[in-house]
Simulated assay, not measured.
Amino acid sequence: MGYSPSIYKFAGGADVPVPLDLELVQAVLEPFDVGDPGLRSDPGGCLQFWIRAGDGSEAEIFAGDTGILVERPHSGGVFGIIAELMSRLGAVALDPGEGRIVCRAQEYAQLPLGMRKDAVVIEMTGERLEAALLGRSPV
């Protein structure tokens, strides 16, 4: 897959994403990281992971203070890991191709008003997240 969705957290309808809990990001992703642990953190405090799900699907993930980039996620179980991360953070995914936001109802209420018209509210599971980002019917 040649696209890279981004993950952000909003609060109170503010236009600017709020800081992410990078310790939580690390706790969720570390068990699935197959990359070099010595490269997990850079001097600026950003985190990077190469995660792999049980079915072999993978993604590279780069996390900073206010955003996470999910590089080239493969179709499959890796979306379950991403959905878990989003749920635990209370975050939304931005589909770069369509410009839509994918989120749960809880996060929809926190979005800036201007972003709500492009939001797709789903039950946050790997299958539903993958379907919403790829424009497919969920399994």
Rank of each mutant, 00 (worst) to 15 (best):
E60L: 10
V102W: 07
G64Y: 02
R128W: 10
S75L: 15
V121N: 05
A83Y: 13
Q110C: 09
L22T: 10
G97H: 01
G44I: 00
Y3C: 03
S75D: 13
V28K: 01
P31H: 01
V16I: 13
V70M: 03
K9S: 05
Y3K: 02
V34C: 00
G90R: 08
A119V: 13
G80R: 10
R136N: 10
D65S: 04
P138G: 11
A83M: 12
G99E: 06
Q48P: 03
S4M: 04
R104E: 15
G45W: 07
D33S: 04
I82S: 03
G67S: 07
F79C: 09
V34Q: 05
F49T: 03
P138T: 09
L85W: 09
L69M: 05
L134V: 10
K9V: 05
D118I: 05
L129E: 11
S137T: 05
E60Y: 13
L113N: 11
P73W: 11
H74G: 08
S57T: 13
G76H: 07
G56H: 00
A91H: 04
G135A: 03
V28H: 04
R72I: 11
G13Y: 08
G114W: 10
G97P: 00
D118G: 14
I122T: 08
L20N: 04
L133A: 11
E130G: 13
R128S: 14
F10R: 06
L111S: 10
I82L: 15
I51S: 03
V121T: 12
V78F: 08
G56L: 02
L20V: 11
L85Y: 06
L47S: 12
R88L: 10
G45M: 07
F79S: 11
I51D: 01
I68P: 03
V28T: 06
A105L: 13
R88W: 03
R40T: 11
A11K: 12
G38C: 04
Q48L: 06
L134I: 08
E84C: 07
S137I: 00
A59V: 09
V28G: 03
I81G: 12
I81V: 14
R88N: 06
M115V: 02
C103I: 05
P31Q: 00
D95M: 00
F32E: 00
F62N: 09
S57N: 07
S137F: 01
P112Y: 12
L39C: 10
A11Q: 09
S41Q: 15
L69V: 08
E84A: 06
Q48H: 07
L111P: 05
